[in-house]
């Protein structure tokens, strides 16, 4: 019996990432779409895509939201956790998650973020951290590194004027209602796989009704870092990760 040879597609664009021109809006080397790919793969693998509802913020991450095959609501800048709270409480059997940027989540969105943490909402918050406001042209964000030049810190971030980078995963881990808080990056294959595991664990917490889950993903932003894509990955390794250590900051299966 001779085995006929079959051609199959081993890897490609996940089905949940729709084939829309909006992906083309991303700058060369921007890793937001890689973050979106991970979300699509995880929700597909967990079999929850059909009951997922995505709340997108305002910023570069939002373009991904328009091109993911979930029911999606675009929120006012920073308010995604508010919308997610209402949607989840009204439909507790859905999987509700927000996709936000660092400015969206912890600058203008700090109020709703802390509100959701305080209430321990049963939602998943994913924050793409590219240490600046991307869409608006590269301004200072709460996560901008010390001495990092942005269009609003032309001489570089200084402590006396702009304070210090905000550590959001550690902040989230400090709340009782948080079941899971982790930070990953996409600057190499190991970190890519690790980040996918973090996102999967986060959604598992929501599936198991444990508590709020938060995953931060460091994402390269070559144009606003004034680096090439490959230099951006090195900058993540040498500068960003030392400031924002990767790992799981809280991981519990029950909140007493």
């Amino acid at each position: 019996m001779n085995n006929s040879i079959v051609k199959e597609r081993a890897w490609g664009r996940p089905e949940l990432c729709l084939d829309l021109p909006v992906w083309g809006l991303y700058c060369p080397g921007c890793q937001h779409p890689v973050g979106a790919r991970l979300i699509a793969e995880v929700l597909d693998e967990l079999g929850i895509a059909d009951r997922a509802i995505l709340i997108i913020g305002v910023g570069c991450h939002a373009f991904s939201g328009f091109a993911l095959n979930f029911d999606v609501v675009s929120s006012c800048h920073g308010r995604a956790p508010d919308l997610a709270t209402a949607v989840k409480r009204i439909h507790p059997d859905t999987i509700v998650f927000s996709l936000q940027g660092d400015g969206d989540c912890i600058a203008i969105g700090a109020g709703p973020f802390i509100g959701a943490l305080t209430r321990g909402e049963m939602i998943t918050i994913i924050m793409l951290n590219n240490t600046n406001y991307g869409t608006t042209g590269g301004q200072l964000a709460p996560t901008t590194l010390m001495e990092q030049r942005t269009t609003t810190t032309p001489e570089g971030r200084t402590a006396d004027r702009e304070g210090y980078p905000a550590h959001v995963a550690e902040l989230a881990a400090g709340f009782k209602g948080t079941a899971y808080s982790a930070r990953g990056a996409l600057n190499n294959l190991a970190n890519y796989k690790r980040t996918k595991k973090y996102i999967k664990t986060a959604f598992q917490k929501q599936i198991n009704n444990v508590g709020l889950s938060y995953v931060e993903v460091i994402s390269a932003c070559p144009p606003n870092w004034h680096l090439s894509p490959l230099e951006s990955l090195e900058w993540i390794e040498e500068k960003v990760i030392p400031e924002f250590p990767l790992g799981e900051f809280k991981n519990v299966d029950r909140i007493e």
Binding site: V73, S75, R79, D82, L83, A86, V87, I90, P112
Partner: peptide, 9 residues
């Protein structure tokens, strides 16, 4: 904004 989320359902 929670009202916005609720209304969307």
């Amino acid at each position: 904004n929670m009202l916005y989320g609720a209304a969307s359902t």
